[in-house]
Design a protein around this nucleic acid. Structure first.
Lengths: 157, 157
DNA sequence: TATTGTTATACTCTATAACTATA
DNA sequence: TATAGTTATAGAGTATAACAATA
């Protein structure tokens, strides 16, 4: 094998960007109406994995403003998916917990999404699917490289 | 090589779904504020590639309602990125054109995105980058499999 | 009548600015 | 004073329903 030429390193990021853009659009349109927003999913998922978090930390981690997180948590709370609790060590702090209903909703959503995507994946050629699997490590790395502090406005269409 | 076992076909779609979901979120947060929405980009891109289109066709193709497309085109027009023109053959029809400013804005946005992503890609190991490139055909197929008629509400966080 | 597009209205999610409460 | 969080208000983008104009 020749490791010195034709490296992927030489490929313009433009191609990958374009592909990711189409993929993002596909993924957003895959969502049935009335579902949890991507930020909501991300928050519930984090709370489920790592336990209660401060509202400010959640806002910073998700790249949204503190008021936006206040409102998201309020919506989650009204839906019974999360709860606010005080911090005994600091009266100003709000600790956000995921509820059992929140865990259930998250699991159901994941299953539904996987089913939808599964249907699409089943239409891929074997080689294409292998390619997708080969990309998983890169996706893991990329997403862990994501800076937390970017306060980007997320617009979805 | 063994093509009969350990096929990617056997992998749970759950893993791929989760990875693509994280990737989508990363990509959405990569966007500087005040940018064009994904639908706007998709519309301008289509108009640039294939020429003027009817408003109804654009709405169907983007999976949004006709009123939503009316409003998007109005915003694009106010921003000078697109224009409305009548169809001499059918007085009811509005043909949407991209302007030179629209082409420019699209090109600049693509370049900016590619630059941001490039920075992240440069931090990947060679093998990871190769894996990402290997996934491009699958992403192309997936996005072309996307049904046009899904009227999903697009929520981005 | 059917089709094309717009207007009216409401909802979700976001932002910035101003505010309250605690440290 | 500084920090944590909320409230107030506005804007983008979407939907459904009702409408106008043309075929």
């Amino acid at each position: 094998m020749d490791f010195s030429s034709d490296s992927a390193r030489d490929l313009p990021a433009t191609e990958i960007t374009a592909a990711l853009e189409r993929l993002t659009r596909l993924f957003l349109r895959l969502a049935p109406r009335g579902e949890l927003s991507l930020t909501a999913v991300s928050v519930l998922s984090l709370l489920g994995r790592s336990g209660p978090r401060r509202l400010t930390d959640l806002a910073a981690g998700e790249g949204v403003t503190q008021p936006a997180m206040t409102q998201l948590v309020s919506r989650l709370q009204e839906a019974g998916l999360a709860e606010r609790a005080g911090d005994p060590e600091d009266g100003r702090v709000v600790l956000v917990h995921v509820t059992d209903a929140g865990r259930t909703a998250l699991a159901e959503r994941s299953a539904a999404r996987a089913a939808l995507l599964s249907e699409l994946l089943s239409q891929l050629a074997e080689a294409e699917l292998d390619g997708l699997v080969a990309a998983l490590p890169a996706i893991d790395s990329l997403t862990s490289l994501m800076p937390d502090e970017r306060p980007a406005t997320v617009r979805a269409s």
